[in-house]
């Protein structure tokens, strides 16, 4: 059985956010939630400042605190290493979200996609209401609803349960790549079986010095980062003199 992992090449990543948009469409992610997200940081003091961008998603940790703490095993590990969630077992205690060191789990505080359920027309008799528009488009709640998501997880998760990235397990199951990997225009994301020494992820991890987020916690994240995008250079000196 494979153990899936992702390598994100920060030298290739341009921070365009296509991964997040593709993820949102693929997984019918409600507004305010980000299965695929980013950490932006600035370092230095003006005028010597620099901007850093780290794409984030569920780390599918080997020792996942969210899985350990879930009282009903709603959050669980698949045999292929993917950390999966079952909304039918979720009691909505939010302990996984509390426990996650990476801030990648979200709670459905209300019925998802409230905008598309609104039945009020902007101009009475003149425009469709969002709910009508969604229905005319043939979507389920969303006009751009993706029914494929429903194959392994509720297409739209109900209120009162958590949700997060699943490495697009429904696509992986049929041999396709996660949507964020597919959508990346810079090919900065590499996905594969970390237990196979010949996989591309294994080769990259052997070639570059990877880092992972908050490694000291011992969660063994399965999202690795390699390289860094930095075109800057400086004149060599002896100790800056």
């Amino acid at each position: 059985m494979p153990r899936y992992a992702m390598v994100i090449d920060l030298q290739r990543c341009v921070g365009c956010g296509a991964c997040s948009i593709a993820c949102r469409s693929e997984n019918n992610v409600p507004d305010g939630m980000y299965w695929s997200n980013k950490i932006t940081e600035t370092s230095g003091t003006f005028p010597n400042v620099r901007y850093h961008y780290i794409p984030t998603l569920c780390n599918h940790c080997e020792n996942a605190p969210c899985v350990r703490g879930c009282p009903t095993q709603a959050m669980h590990k698949l045999e292929n290493g993917i950390t999966m969630h079952d909304p039918n077992k979720c009691i909505g205690c939010k302990y996984c979200e509390f426990n996650c060191p990476y801030g990648v789990i979200y709670f459905n505080w209300r019925k998802p996609h409230p905008f598309w359920q609104d039945e009020s027309e902007l101009i009475k008799g003149g425009t469709y209401s969002p709910a009508e528009e969604a229905s005319k488009a043939g979507g389920k709640v969303l006009p751009y609803y993706n029914p494929e998501r429903n194959e392994t997880l509720a297409g739209i998760r109900p209120k009162g349960v958590v949700e997060k990235c699943t490495f697009c397990d429904h696509l992986v199951k049929r041999g396709e790549l996660p949507r964020c990997v597919e959508a990346c225009p810079a090919d900065a994301r590499v996905f594969g079986d970390i237990s196979d020494p010949n996989s591309e992820v294994s080769k990259l991890l052997g070639k570059f010095r990877p880092f992972r987020l908050r490694e000291q916690l011992g969660t063994d994240p399965h999202v690795f980062y390699i390289r860094d995008f930095n075109p800057a250079h400086y004149q060599p000196t002896k100790g800056g003199v």
């Binding site: 350990r68 703490g69 879930c70 009282p71 009903t72 095993q73 709603a74 039918n88 077992k89 979720c90 009691i91 909505g92 205690c93 939010k94 302990y95 709670f107 459905n108 109900p158 209120k159 009162g160 349960v161």
Partner: peptide
């Protein structure tokens, strides 16, 4: 009233996770 889906509490018994302090507390 704090839990998002109190009706799923049945899974505390049907699908227990012995490594969870919330399970033990419940």
């Amino acid at each position: 009233l704090e839990l998002g889906n109190v009706l799923h509490m049945i899974y505390i018994f049907l699908s227990p996770n012995l490594s969870s302090p919330i399970w033990w507390m419940g």
